[in-house]
């Protein structure tokens, strides 16, 4: 099949950036979206041009590294999907596809489609953990977790930290990312003692990084490759409110 790509090119964080148009012929509809970029880059290298920089690693939808806004949607047209798991058979022959990086001031562009998501790491460092040193653990089965809670915790824990939620949000809010971790850990008995400290510290760091506020448009849930529900944001808000009233400073 044939496709035309309008790809965001930006040399570095200082460069203003612009779209460039590329034509690709003889694509296999079973190729993945990133394999199409491999083909494009081979073509650019042959022509002596600069290949397109993009983030990717596992190419099986779990590492969270790939990050392209495709025709205005993070990770493209399918639901519950990552860019690396998107295949060309979901596009029409001859179609023009626009590809951009995640756009958020907390995720500055490094080059082309590559952005800096280290803000997420700093949010986790602020409180997204259970404080237990190696060796301090008790016997695993001495902690009982009702199956429903374990399942719900898992539903939140599946977050791959890709940032699609931020890219999809008109406010570039990181609420779904933060909510997923807060929810995961506050649903488990192990996370109980530091639950209030955790939510306050994570939210404070989130604000500090410059992510926007949540206005409940639910765009994050729609874009999330793991289908993490906005109900976790409700839990985050509840946790935050409780922490504000209940935690003694």
């Amino acid at each position: 099949m044939r496709l035309t790509l309008k790809v965001w090119r930006q040399k570095n964080s200082q460069d203003k950036g612009r779209f460039e148009v590329y034509h690709l012929n003889d694509l296999d509809e079973h190729a993945s979206f990133l394999e199409m970029f491999d083909v494009l880059n081979e073509q650019l290298i042959r022509e002596g041009k600069d290949p397109v920089a993009f983030d990717h690693d596992c190419r099986e939808g779990i590492c969270g590294m790939c990050s392209m806004v495709i025709n205005g949607r993070p990770h493209g047209p399918l639901t519950h999907n990552t860019t690396c798991q998107l295949h060309l058979r979901h596009f029409r022959d001859g179609e023009t596809i626009t590809v951009e990086p995640w756009r958020a001031s907390a995720f500055p562009v490094i080059k082309d489609l590559v952005v800096d998501r280290s803000a997420f790491d700093r949010i986790i460092a602020a409180g997204g953990f259970i404080s237990v040193n190696t060796g301090q653990a008790v016997e695993a089965n001495s902690i009982l977790v009702p199956k429903e809670n374990a399942d719900q915790a898992m539903n939140a824990a599946v977050c791959i930290g890709c940032g699609a939620c931020v890219a999809a949000c008109k406010n570039a809010s990181a609420m779904l990312f933060v909510a997923a971790k807060v929810s995961h850990l506050s649903l488990l008995p192990q996370g109980e003692p530091e639950r209030y400290r955790r939510v306050k510290n994570m939210v404070a760091q989130m604000d500090k990084e410059g992510f926007g506020a949540c206005t409940n448009t639910n765009a994050c849930e729609a874009a999330c490759p793991k289908g993490i529900s906005v109900t976790h944001i409700a839990r985050l808000n509840r946790e935050y409110l409780k922490a504000t009233f209940l935690q003694e400073e």
Binding site: A140, P146, K147, A150, A153
Partner: peptide, 22 residues
Amino acid sequence: TNIIDQCVAQGVPFAREYGGLL
């Protein structure tokens, strides 16, 4: 065996039975 203890303590959401056990 220590690994499982450690990971559970960290909050790794392993699959569980209805009784709450792993």
